[in-house]
């Protein structure tokens, strides 16, 4: 049941002289919500970038366990699109939507790696291509309905309110049918009402068995959502455990000194 799906060991990332990640170990099991926290500049986003193939880590291993294929796949050295194909999907800390495309089209892009039509398909519009196209539209529509964005479907993405843009990033990532969903500060910049809705949404997604790894600064959100927490500071892991353990961990309190830890 609690099969680890992502296993990262000894991950190290150097930028010139700066060691942004230092020998980091982390794992996520199936169906879990895991949080990765740490002060600003701790290296959380860099961790995501390494795992998703955007940066090439200096050292370490990243393995994804594929249940369907029942085998371990090393993600090291893969291009970002290959990583996504293997089953990791992410959102970005600074929203990166396709701003001139409609909301629905943004989600449809997420279906790209699960579909096949190409030049000839586009030209001939044969039955198979049209079926696939229908499937793309239908699935995307369903995902948007689930995320609660169906009323914006044909709006241009950049005209959406901020909170809705963040949710759209999640919808887009879900469309790739990820084994593990990576969320980089999904609540950043949201108002309290939007944050509550987001918590509900994440819980709903998780209840369907989706494994999630999330970065977040909002402690209340982290404590209420996650089953396990990893804490980073200066590129190193300084603690891991359940929310309860983390709350009382002296190293964590020290790292966050001056920041609100208690929920």
């Amino acid at each position: 049941m609690h099969q680890p799906i992502l296993q990262v060991a000894g991950l190290t990332m150097d930028f010139g002289g700066i060691r942004a990640l230092n020998n980091l170990d982390l794992d996520v099991s199936e169906g879990e919500i895991v949080a990765l926290i740490g002060p600003n500049g701790a290296g959380k986003t860099t961790f995501f970038n390494c795992v998703t193939g955007i940066y090439k880590p200096t050292k370490g291993s990243i393995d994804l366990f594929h249940k369907k294929k029942n085998r371990q796949i090393s993600l090291l050295g893969m291009k970002p699109n290959q990583v996504t194909e293997q089953g990791l999907a992410r959102t970005f800390q600074n929203i990166r939507l396709f701003s001139q495309m409609t909301v629905l089209e943004n989600v449809m892009i997420g279906r790209h790696c699960r579909t096949k039509a190409f030049i000839l398909g586009a030209l001939l519009r044969d039955k198979k291509t049209m079926q696939e196209e229908d499937e793309i539209i239908q699935t995307s529509h369903e995902i948007l309905t689930k995320i609660g964005l169906q009323r914006y479907e044909n709006e241009i993405a950049k005209n959406l309110p901020y909170g809705a843009q963040r949710r759209l990033e999640i919808a887009r990532a879900l469309a790739t049918e990820p084994v593990l969903l990576l969320l980089d500060e999904p609540a950043a910049g949201m108002n309290p009402q939007e944050t509550i809705e987001l918590v509900n949404l994440i819980q709903e997604i998780a209840s369907e068995g989706q494994s999630i790894l999330l970065i977040e600064h909002d402690m209340k959100l982290v404590m209420s959502l996650s089953e396990r927490i990893f804490v980073m500071d200066y590129g190193k892991k300084i603690a891991q455990g359940t929310p309860e353990e983390i709350r009382n961990n002296p190293a964590v309190i020290k790292a966050y000194l001056g920041e609100e830890v208690d929920a």
């Binding site: 396709f98 701003s99 790209h112 398909g121």
Partner: peptide, 29 residues
């Protein structure tokens, strides 16, 4: 016209909008 409204056409436009996000969505740049 057909290309534009196809899977490939959408990928082109997405690529134009944001290359990194595009790759992260599984499109081979």
């Amino acid at each position: 016209n057909r290309l534009q409204d196809s899977r490939l056409g959408r990928a082109w436009i997405a690529l134009r909008e944001d290359e990194i996000a595009c790759q992260a969505m599984g499109i081979d740049k």
